[in-house]
């Protein structure tokens, strides 16, 4: 036997032992992981399943204490009632008109501002970016009342005030309250719902993009705006997808501002917030409210949830690739 073979014989069992130990710890870790994940998934999915279960319970099922999950006499009447009380058709259209349009505006306006912050070293950049963070930190509730007045008597940023200084001229202020402009205008300028966070995410992504591509397009004679449209946007689909999903979801769920700004045309979120009270006022007993409210909640979630199911794979992949460094 050569010395090499002897050495091999000695080392092989040692390696095996090591491997066995590694495998055992790996198994324990993976079991622990699955138990934890399943437990938490259960906590997450429980309310959804419970909502579904509640929403199809008839009055008899609520009184029947033996019914926990699957109702004996399932009814879809609740959805019909919830549809009426939500005024679903109209309020859904309102949500699309108000929320989706301003989400679309915000997705682009924030990208433009973030590109400016990420690629160019102009004077006062640090200060201005500090203000971006401030817009993200200040709670929206603090701004709601002055904002409402701003829209109720909209003066184009004191422009109408200035014109009215001319004697004899008296232009009335615009009334933008109860119109989608309340959300469109700030979104157009990149100061809409959670725009600060979006600008932050975009900026981090743009800073990580290789400069060479943009430099090449500069040399070829593109101006910065064209470079942004033709080179930067096509290569940052990932971050656009992430921000779009967040923007759409948050605009759908927006409640605090809508409830102040709107007095007649309500989006879905405001209708949903009031659905329990309006049911209660029509004389539905407290104990029978839950199925209707559950149905309303599910109808509210459904569009976003369906959208999420379609985009889920891409969204999860995109989060891997966006890379928010902070």
């Amino acid at each position: 036997m050569s010395t090499k073979e002897i050495q091999l014989k000695k080392t092989v069992p040692a390696l095996n032992k090591h491997k066995v130990k590694e495998k055992a710890t790996g198994l324990v870790v993976s079991i622990f992981r699955y138990v934890l994940l399943i437990a938490i998934s259960y906590i997450i999915l429980y309310p959804l399943f419970a909502l579904i279960s509640f929403s199809i319970q008839s009055k008899a099922d609520i009184l029947d204490s033996s019914v926990t999950w699957i109702p004996r006499a399932p009814t879809f009447e609740t959805y019909k009632v919830a549809w009426e009380y939500l005024d679903y058709g109209n309020s859904f259209l309102n949500t699309i008109l108000i929320g989706m349009v301003s989400a679309a505006l915000e997705i682009f306006s924030c990208a433009v501002a973030a590109y400016g912050f990420a690629r160019f070293k102009f004077k006062g950049r640090g200060l201005l970016f500090g203000l971006v963070l401030l817009t993200a930190i200040v709670p929206v509730q603090i701004l709601v009342i002055p904002q409402f007045l701003n829209y109720r008597y909209f003066n184009l940023g004191y422009l109408i005030d200035l014109i009215n200084l001319i004697p004899g001229v008296n232009i009335p202020f615009l009334d933008l309250s109860d119109s989608p402009f309340t959300f469109w205008l700030p979104s157009l300028f990149g100061v809409g719902l959670r725009s600060g966070l979006f600008i932050f995410i975009y900026r981090q992504f743009f800073m990580g993009l290789p400069k060479e591509l943009e430099e090449a397009s500069w040399i070829d004679g593109c101006n910065p705006l064209m470079t942004f449209v033709r080179v930067v946007i096509p290569s940052s689909g990932v971050v656009f997808l992430t921000v779009s999903i967040f923007a759409i979801i948050w605009h759908c769920n927006e409640y605090y501002q809508s409830v102040i700004y709107f007095s007649e045309t309500f989006p879905l979120s405001v209708m949903l917030a009031g659905v329990r009270d309006s049911l209660w006022h029509t004389g539905v007993l407290d104990m029978y409210l839950a199925p209707y409210v559950s149905a309303a909640c599910l109808m509210f979630i459904a569009p976003v949830l369906i959208l999420y199911l379609f985009l889920q794979k891409k969204f999860i992949q995109s989060i891997d690739r966006v890379g928010i460094v902070g």
Partner: peptide
């Protein structure tokens, strides 16, 4: 690009500055 024609960045940020003053700073002060 970062330093070349850095003032271009200002144009990119300008809409945001207008919006920030109109829809953030003024309401905040009010």
């Amino acid at each position: 690009i970062e330093s070349k024609k850095s003032w271009y960045g200002f144009y990119f940020v300008l809409p945001w500055i207008i919006g920030m003053v109109l829809f953030f700073i003024i309401p905040l002060i009010n």
